[in-house]
């Protein structure tokens, strides 16, 4: 046991091989990715939902085009997406390796995923509730702010939680572009250097983080959910 705990993965800090530093990098990549993803993905989900209901031909075309782009984004294997994105990453982030480059690729992968989930959350609002507020003379902006987002909020919190957990999984692959983090540590030290202690420690820590995120997400969803429990 003490032999295990003296492994540099536990005792060092700030180095490439430190469990704690890499955990912080994983958390940084995950939460930065989610900040951008929520900022882009929620409006995109709203756009998908709103354009779906329209009867105007050009709006329906917008829906089809955006829907297609989202589907393409979701069907790319992440590892291929990272490589395919490299030229764009270089322009936007300035470099193709490191955590920030990884955040860009992670965001591109997570946005379509979240957007579809948000669209599904919005569809679950009974049409009668939306119509009731339309009949009060609500504008589209009022409808979005006062009905769509608040009524779908418990579901939206769940979707953000799910996307966050998927992103944690993807950060492991981000090691490929030198993203660092727990996945990369497990790969370098555990898998390639046959250090089972590092392997087990990173996996256990990843599981703990995922459980923590899920618990937090579920708790927030419960607090904002005023629907009858069935």
């Amino acid at each position: 046991m003490s032999e295990w705990l003296s492994n540099p993965v536990f005792t060092t800090w700030g180095s490439n091989t430190s469990l704690w530093s890499n955990a912080l990098i994983t958390l940084y990549m995950t939460f930065a990715t989610m900040a951008f993803t929520v900022l882009v993905g929620v409006p995109l989900g709203l756009l998908l939902f709103e354009t779906e209901r329209s009867r105007t031909p050009w709006v329906r075309w917008v829906n089809r085009v955006v829907g297609f782009v989202v589907n393409v984004g979701r069907s790319f294997p992440f590892i291929i997406l990272i490589i395919a994105l490299m030229p764009v990453t270089r322009v936007i982030v300035g470099r193709v390796t490191g955590p920030n480059a990884a955040i860009f690729a992670l965001t591109v992968a997570a946005v379509p995923f979240l957007a579809r989930l948000i669209e599904i959350n919005l569809r679950e609002i009974p049409a009668g509730k939306i119509e009731a507020v339309q009949m009060m003379g609500a504008s589209r902006a009022q409808l979005i702010r006062q009905v769509l987002l608040p009524e779908a909020l418990p579901g939206i919190v769940g979707s953000i939680t799910t996307t966050t957990i998927a992103t944690i999984g993807y950060t492991a692959m981000a090691g490929v572009v030198g993203g660092k983090g727990l996945g990369d540590l497990a790969n370098r030290m555990g898998y390639q250097s046959y250090d089972n202690v590092v392997m087990v420690a990173t996996v256990v820590l990843l599981i703990a983080i995922v459980i923590g995120v899920q618990a937090l997400g579920s708790q927030i969803a419960r607090v904002v959910d005023h629907r009858a429990r069935s």
Binding site: Q146, V224, H226
Partner: peptide, 11 residues
């Protein structure tokens, strides 16, 4: 307007 199931907002 008054509806059969009231259509109140749960939020």
């Amino acid at each position: 307007m008054v509806f059969q199931h009231a259509n109140l907002l749960d939020s």
